[in-house]
């Protein structure tokens, strides 16, 4: 995974709350067996509307999306994160994210920045004209107007993002503990191994 230290550039001022995963990538795009190419279906229902922010030339290639509460609610489809990756989005700023989506985003190197609604409102305003800067190392979002919004992010996730670490490899370094847990289970809860049907 690519290491991310900062995200810098224009931000799409989407602003909507409850942006669900069917909006991010409709189900008919989920039939792929690959992780790439999903950007073409991203936000299809919004892009069908004339004058939408995604097709506004002002935001071409913008690496950031700013949204309202509960971004990424709905299904567990990681295709939502893959679609954002494919359209070049590296970070999303919102007052809250669905738990599953923020996990999926993290595993694909997308930074999810949680800020209070007032800060998000201010960034939505700035985004119309100017770039936004997300500094993961110092956990702060800044604008060219001296705005400075500190955010919290899990240290483990931040470390993985900044070093591009592979989580499976990290876990397998602990394989002895997993084996020990399985040995204990075999003694204490032998019924956990399913009966071969």
């Amino acid at each position: 995974m690519k290491a991310v230290n900062k995200v810098d550039g224009r931000a799409i001022p989407l602003g909507l709350k409850n942006v669900d995963t069917d909006v991010i990538i409709p189900a008919h795009y989920l039939k792929t067996i690959s992780r790439i190419g999903l950007g073409k279906g991203a936000f299809e229902t919004i892009r069908a509307q004339p004058g939408n922010v995604f097709d506004d030339p002002e935001y071409t290639g913008a690496p950031i999306i700013i949204a309202g509460d509960n971004f990424g609610c709905g299904s567990s489809r990681e295709h939502a994160a893959w679609a954002l990756n494919d359209m070049g989005v590296e970070a999303v700023i919102a007052p809250s994210f669905s738990d599953i989506f923020s996990g999926n985003a993290f595993k694909n190197g997308i930074v999810t920045v949680v800020l209070p609604q007032e800060a998000v409102d201010r960034l939505l305003e700035v985004a119309k004209t100017d770039p936004i800067h997300i500094d993961l190392e110092n956990k702060v979002v800044t604008t060219p107007y001296q705005d400075r919004f500190a955010f919290e992010i899990d240290d483990f996730r931040r470390n993985c993002l900044m070093n591009g670490l592979d989580e499976i490899g990290l876990t397998l370094a602990n394989a002895d503990r997993i084996t020990a847990h399985e040995r204990t289970l075999a003694q204490t809860q032998p019924w956990l191994v399913p009966v071969a049907a």
Binding site: S75, S76, R77, E78, A81, I100, G103, N104, K107, N108, D154, F156, E167, I168, T171, L172, A175, I178, E182
Partner: peptide
């Protein structure tokens, strides 16, 4: 019981565990 994304599916297949808070 809870839903997971595809990277987590791969993580569970490979390790039978998940990193969770």
């Amino acid at each position: 019981a809870f839903g997971i994304g595809t990277s987590e599916v791969e993580h569970v297949l490979a390790t039978q565990t998940l990193q969770l808070k």
